[in-house]
């Protein structure tokens, strides 16, 4: 189980990285933490011609608070998020989710940008971005785009990211006093991908609820969000709108049921 051969590039800055990406025109893959890409390469289901290691690109690092939002560089590792005072104070939902994301050794390398670019529907980070109404900052040959998380994820491992673009950062609204957050994921084993998981943010009576591990991407259901504050039972009926995953771990019906349980428990935690 050895990765196929590739050229390894290590640009010193963002401009160089973008130039390399453009030069290889779709044959190059950026390497962030590598915690998902490397296994795919070892299994030879991913076989990029060129790997562009973003480790030295300083522009992709750092966590800053700018007024009413927090900017997290794409190459920020989970371990850095878990220790960062800005994140813990202003984006508490991320802090709630981090202990559930894999294990220490993975969190020590895995990055927020890498997870978003990969768009694994079972991963926590895309759902967190949806619940937090984050925007994803993307830079390419045609300049910088700020894409709402709602518009970023398309399907299994598919996003709106163009092949010459890199995620540079995510921009998340700072948590306010009127906000509260919930998170629940149901896994048989600690750190596994969830059978069903949910991230919730509530601003006054308004909810943003993003499920993960249940469909082809992290998903919100508008009708559910609109009604959940009034009648949870009724709101859960709107889960029907999701096309649930059916696989060896759980069929669609089970996943739907577990999504309902996850939401119920996340909400209970928020009120308790």
């Amino acid at each position: 189980m050895k990765a196929p051969d590739f050229d390894y590039l290590r640009p010193a800055n963002l401009d160089a990285a973008l130039a390399m990406l453009a030069e290889h025109d779709g044959n190059a893959v950026p390497l962030a933490g590598g915690q998902s890409l490397m296994p795919m390469m070892n299994f030879r289901v991913a076989a990029p011609e060129v790997l562009i290691d973003l480790a030295d690109v300083a522009e992709l690092r750092g966590i800053t608070r700018n007024g009413d939002h927090v900017r997290i560089g794409a190459m920020t590792r989970y371990v850095q998020l878990s220790k960062d005072p800005i994140i813990l104070a202003d984006v508490p939902l991320i802090g709630m989710a981090l202990p559930h994301i894999a294990h220490d050794a993975i969190r020590n390398r895995g990055t927020i940008g890498g997870s978003l670019a990969l768009a694994d529907p079972a991963a926590e980070m895309p759902a967190l971005m949806l619940a937090l109404d984050a925007a994803i900052e993307v830079v390419g040959a045609n300049g910088t785009r700020l894409i709402k998380a709602d518009n970023f994820f398309l399907s299994y491992f598919e996003t709106v990211l163009e092949k010459d673009e890199l995620i540079t950062a995510v921009v998340i609204p700072t948590a306010s006093n009127t906000q509260s957050f919930g998170f629940c994921e149901l896994t048989q084993r600690h750190g596994d991908y969830a059978l069903a998981g949910v991230a919730v943010s509530r601003t006054d009576a308004k909810y943003r609820i993003a499920f993960f591990g249940v469909a082809d991407r992290a998903v919100r259901v508008a009708a559910l969000e609109d009604t959940v504050g009034d009648d949870l039972e009724k709101a859960l009926a709107h889960l029907d709108e999701i096309e649930f995953t059916d696989d060896g771990k759980a069929n669609a019906a089970t996943r739907q049921r577990l999504a309902g349980v996850a939401l119920t428990r996340a909400l209970e935690e928020m009120t308790s």
Binding site: L31, G34, M38, N42, R109
Partner: peptide
């Protein structure tokens, strides 16, 4: 798992080049 710059890291998910 080995220790890289003080952190535990999966040796199979990191390139020697990295």
């Amino acid at each position: 798992t080995v220790i890289v710059d003080g952190d535990s890291v999966r040796g199979c998910l990191m390139l020697a080049a990295q």
